[in-house]
Design a protein around this nucleic acid. Structure first.
Lengths: 205, 205, 205, 205
DNA sequence: GATGAATGAGCGTTCATTCAT
DNA sequence: AATGAATGAACGCTCATTCAT
């Protein structure tokens, strides 16, 4: 009642909106998200959202930004403690997948929206987003220099590995992986194959 | 009673609806698809669609079914002429990606819609859908038996390869691959790494 | 119940919408007109209006068109029975004012909306609208040839007379004329002065 | 407590609100005027406006009042230097039109809003507003006494002249005068005809 | 087999205004 | 004197769907 530090019930409506939107995203998906539903879920009028965000797009952009930042931090931390490029690549893959599975709401808006449907996501933010890919590019380059990989172009391979991880997360989130396959085993195999795919080939294919 | 409207190909409105919907899907995307737009595009009343389909979902289910059948045929044909498991796997990968890029309208509804949000896609159809995965499983099994691969479980690896291909197609369709990367090179690298990922590893990772 | 000639209660929803809109316009004004209010007033859902009109603009354009046609007919008829240009001009003035006062709803959307607010009124209709002005131009020209007027340019004078009549109608509709002035006398004076204004001046002013 | 925000002209927020509203009116029109836009434009919160005005209507009433005062002054000055009633009437007409064209923001709220729809514009202000009409009444009376005019009732003719001028300004502001007509010529003709309309008629009409 | 008429629910957004501080 | 937070009502419009014919 007296003071309102920084995480009191007061004032952080903006925070509440972001969190609620995240939860709704995971429960109902982007398509079924509406300003009214968000408002109802937080117990405020729809108008109130506009006090904190310029509109639906701005709200989602803010969420995407948060997701990108969080992913960035997680990848950074994962890369930090790795001893060699291979271990580092493995850690990055694992972290990316974990992030996607743990934050499906972020994942959907960050990676699964067709850009044509999310109008005008500021290009400057896209650049920042893509910086997450650089983690993979750097470690591939490094490993290549040390003769651990057999890739042609670190940038290209970073993208294909990303594609592989993205597919893995997408299928898991969509529950499209055969139920008879154990989740952890699927993930581990996907990672192993991704890394193995960068190895110097034993025979030409 | 006498004349059949003005359309030459008499009767098969159902066919027309499906085709038009496909075209609309590719032009406007799933989100902007509406029954009215379909009806306008075929020159019939919106009500007519309901004579042939129970609703929007049923219409999409039918389309998904068609897409699955077509993909099945294409994979079948691709596998047919391969000489050895590795070549066959390569052909399957290439065909899957080609299918996705050539039929973005199918691809989106087949693989990019969250099933929880597409009301009750009949499980029996899902089973059929999954049969497309068996192509990959079979060739992996075969190659494993011939000592060409070093995988633990063909079913699991089939899924991870599928994941990899799905990620590749998804990123390409969403235009999220760095523009500086040549499209064909990206695809070729993705396929090569997918196959290489199944090879017997040179060192344990 | 059996047959539905052409003015039955059935089918003429379009007509009903137009009429109701007209009434609402006069009761509440253009600013307070909304699709919902129209729908409520006719006892239909708002959606139904869109079955007959592309949108609010199209609905108003249709009304403007009707108004222009009606005014055109009335002016035409007024001009028909006049014996000489002066009588004709007088009849036209009288008819224009009568039309405005009798159809305030038409008058508002026809003449009192700032064009910037009524988006994209088709220019081809504007041309037709302006044709109403030609009645005045023609009679002024004719009278000038017969030496009855002392005007410089029929087109310019037609416009100034129109301005005069427009001001007269506007003030009356807005109830801005002093209550102590009898309505009919005001109108009569306005008309007389408008005509007198075109006479050959007695002294230069 | 110490510093007064950043604005130099301390205190007179009320003045600032009025001025800003005027500018917004001319830039965006009455329809697009909103309290929030005003607040944004002056750099204060929307709430602040309510400290100085009871609401949107009151704010507009204040503006109307100012406009009436300004018009009054201008007409007064115009009348002052005239040598005879005809010249005076001409000067008044010219000044009225000039005022309208130079202050479209004032003109719209002063003369083009239907009072019924502008809640309760205080009648005492209307009286004051009407005083502007008296300029015309007086000069007509005077001219009539001197035999220069042939009008029946100065008050009535003042109103009809006003109507004429009002129509002229309205059409010009709405850009409804044929583009082929030169603006100044249109104005001059309107004024000449207005005055000529009060002359003693050469023949009865 | 095909339609026209109709609708309830919902969309993102803006508005003038209030109230506690 | 000034504000930030909040709101209910309304806006034009689109949607998938139903029903009588």
């Amino acid at each position: 009642m007296s003071e309102q530090s920084e995480s009191g019930e007061n004032g952080d409506l903006r925070r509440k909106i972001l969190d609620t939107t995240r939860h709704l995203l995971v429960r109902e998906g982007y398509q079924n998200l509406s300003m009214r539903k968000i408002a109802d879920a937080i117990g405020y009028s729809a108008t109130s959202i506009y006090l904190h965000f310029d509109g639906k797009d701005a709200l989602l952009h803010a969420l995407i930004h948060e997701g990108m930042m969080q992913l960035h931090e997680e990848l950074e931390e994962a890369a930090e403690y790795a001893e060699d490029p291979v271990q580092c690549l493995r850690a990055l893959c694992r972290q990316f997948i974990d992030f996607g599975l743990a934050n499906p709401e972020y994942y959907e808006i960050m990676f699964q929206l067709r850009p044509e449907r999310m109008e005008r996501y500021p290009p400057e933010k896209y650049r920042q987003a893509r910086s997450n890919l650089d983690f993979f590019g750097r470690v591939l380059e490094e490993g290549e220099e040390q003769g651990m990989f057999g890739i042609e172009d670190a940038k290209v391979s970073a993208s294909t590995i990303w594609a592989s991880l993205h597919g893995t997360v997408s299928l898991l989130l969509a529950d499209r992986v055969d139920v008879s396959i154990e989740r952890e085993r699927f993930i581990e195999t996907a990672i192993r194959q991704s890394i193995q795919g960068c190895r110097r080939p034993t025979v030409s294919s």
